[in-house]
């Protein structure tokens, strides 16, 4: 994930330049316009869906110049084994994330166990019912 763009004010719209470590490591995304060497293509995020109706899960990236090319590549990179029903590709630059600097907004979430379904009292009643009826 790109951590080069630090923002001074918290912003929920943090553009991802690239999820490809090769591009981030070499700072290739900083290449100014006109200096573009065409030595690499933009990246696309690939989401894999194994069954109709199930949520597509992020699988990785491919390099490609167009959505069509990205899909052609995604098929062989991420659907070569097991079951697949569909793939989604999204241009990496269309994905927005928080900055890791703002990770503290999630800090106390693990404490809020009252949001877990298991927290509710009804759970005890279900368990009692199950015990009684030997389910």
């Amino acid at each position: 994930m790109n951590t080069n763009n630090h923002t001074s004010t918290p912003s929920p719209r943090h553009p991802v330049t690239s999820l490809d470590p090769r591009i981030n490591r070499l700072d290739l995304h900083r290449t100014k316009e006109g200096e573009q060497t065409n030595s690499h293509l933009i990246t696309w995020e690939v989401f894999h869906q194994d069954k109709r109706g199930k949520q597509p899960v992020h699988a990785g990236i491919v390099h490609a110049s167009t959505p069509e090319m990205a899909m052609i590549f995604a098929k062989e990179q991420y659907a070569r084994r097991g079951k697949t029903t569909n793939l989604w590709v999204v241009k990496t630059s269309d994905v927005y994330t928080f900055s890791y600097e703002d990770e503290d907004i999630f800090e106390t979430t693990p404490e809020k166990t009252f949001r877990d379904p298991a927290f509710y009292k009804v759970r005890e009643r279900i368990e009692a019912f199950q015990a009684k009826n030997k389910i």
Binding site: L41, H63, A64, I72, F73, K75, E76, Q77, R80
Partner: peptide, 11 residues
């Protein structure tokens, strides 16, 4: 010509 295509063409 590139990693992705190498894999696709080989497959």
């Amino acid at each position: 010509p590139m990693l992705e295509e190498d894999l696709a063409f080989s497959s």
